[in-house]
Amino acid sequence: LGPKYVGLWDFKSRTDEELSFRAGDVFHVARKEEQWWWATLLDEAGGAVAQGYVPHNYLAERE
């Protein structure tokens, strides 16, 4: 699936296409579209919880 990303700060969605998340949440990014990335929010087991657009500057690649 490629690298995983972690949320740096809490983010509250403003549209139906955006995905709310908390700092520390883990994502798989499917598409990078300039300022907004289409991402899947993952649970602790790595299963998909939700999908939506997230601001790229709120995520960091997980080491």
Rank of each mutant, 00 (worst) to 15 (best):
R14T: 15
A39Y: 04
R22T: 10
G2D: 12
H28L: 15
G24M: 04
L8Y: 05
H28P: 02
Q51M: 10
G47C: 12
D16Q: 12
K4N: 10
D25L: 06
K32N: 06
E33D: 10
Y58S: 06
E63A: 13
E61I: 15
L59N: 04
R14Y: 09
A30M: 15
N57H: 11
A60H: 09
A48Q: 11
L59T: 04
V26D: 01
V26T: 12
L42I: 09
H56K: 14
Q51D: 09
W37K: 00
Y5F: 09
A30L: 15
D16E: 13
W36M: 14
S13F: 02
L19R: 02
W37I: 03
E63M: 11
A50W: 06
G24S: 02
V6S: 02
Y53G: 03
G7N: 01
V54P: 00
F27C: 05
A60K: 12
T15N: 13
E18Q: 15
R31A: 08
D16R: 08
K12T: 15
H56A: 15
Q35E: 14
E33L: 08
G47D: 14
E61V: 14
G7K: 01
V26W: 11
A23G: 05
F27P: 00
A48E: 13
W38I: 08
L59C: 03
H28C: 09
E17P: 05
S20Y: 04
F21H: 00
Q51K: 07
F27L: 11
G52S: 00
F21A: 00
D25E: 03
H28I: 15
F27M: 09
R22M: 11
V26R: 06
A48F: 12
A23P: 02
L59F: 04
D10I: 08
E33P: 01
V26E: 11
S13D: 03
G2V: 14
G46D: 08
S13I: 07
K32G: 03
W37Y: 08
V26Y: 11
H28D: 08
F11P: 02
E63N: 12
S20C: 06
A60N: 06
V6P: 03
F11N: 02
W37D: 00
A39W: 05
E18L: 10
E61M: 12
A48G: 08
E18N: 07
R22H: 13
D43Y: 06
R62P: 10
A23M: 08
A45K: 14
R14L: 10
E17Q: 14
D25F: 08
A39P: 02
L59E: 04
E17T: 12
D43F: 06
L42C: 05
T40R: 02
G7C: 08
E61C: 10
R31N: 08
